[in-house]
Nucleic acid binder design. Sequence first.
DNA 1: TTTTATTGTTAGATTTGTCTAACTTTGAAT
DNA 2: ATTCAAAGTTAGACAAATCTAACAATAAAA
Lengths: 140, 140
Amino acid sequence: MDHTKLSQSLEDYLEMVHMLRLANGIARVKDIAAALTVKMPSVAKAMIELKKLGLVTQEPYSGIELTEEGQRVAAMILNRHILLKGFLIKLGVSEAIADKDACCMEHILSAETLGKIEDFMKPAEAVPSPKKAKSVKNKK
Amino acid sequence: MDHTKLSQSLEDYLEMVHMLRLANGIARVKDIAAALTVKMPSVAKAMIELKKLGLVTQEPYSGIELTEEGQRVAAMILNRHILLKGFLIKLGVSEAIADKDACCMEHILSAETLGKIEDFMKPAEAVPSPKKAKSVKNKK
DNA sequence: TTTTATTGTTAGATTTGTCTAACTTTGAAT
DNA sequence: ATTCAAAGTTAGACAAATCTAACAATAAAA
């Protein structure tokens, strides 16, 4: 709703909280720090910001939780990441580099460019009749 | 030679010096500021850094010049910009957005990804025989 | 249960990049 | 030649994001 534009850094932290929760069920400060190769106090400060923005919650000395809004924003960022990584791989980039570069691109590309990349990625189906081509197909 | 990795910000300033010199023959502080939508003191500070790095020179109160190294680095950045903008346009992105997104991407993409994008952009020629695909003009 | 190692937090320093305000230089118009 | 507006510079404030060092809480071992 509020759409407070996050810095690249905060987007990375939020996304990592989401990924660790998907992978481990819990997002701990130590693991966030390791995954982003920063020190724990950097994570702590970032979490304070994300809490202020209403995107995460945390019981002191425990794992980080996502609010509903945080969940929504994190999922959006992660989807961009997945899209971009797949796109780069399709161009022939190696998995590791695709992951790394997607991680940078996900914070900066305009909606228009992301849309065109989506189009590029799904020409498999959705071409039978070029009319009201609104083949929604329900993603996910 | 030294390969001091420039920040995104300094890359932007250096590239803009180059572009203004190509367009106007001279890169003035005021024009750099206008083009990057920052204030003149920000340009002044950036120029101090670029001078320290041996990439630009300047007579006090005059236009900015590029050193040989600065010229080389700036040209490399501009080439990336041109490549990426063309790539996005090929994907169907509008010119204005392509320019803006290329401007972000040019600072972050790995050499591998840039190479694959180059490959993607030039399948016009260089496809006759898929062998030592190093079709570097070789007359004969 | 007490001790100890691990994890998390707080405080404060540092770097980078921006800004505003004030000052200086330059060059064009009077 | 003098004045004055435009362009450039300097000084200093501020915000974001990182770090190290020191401290606090938790959990694991003894």
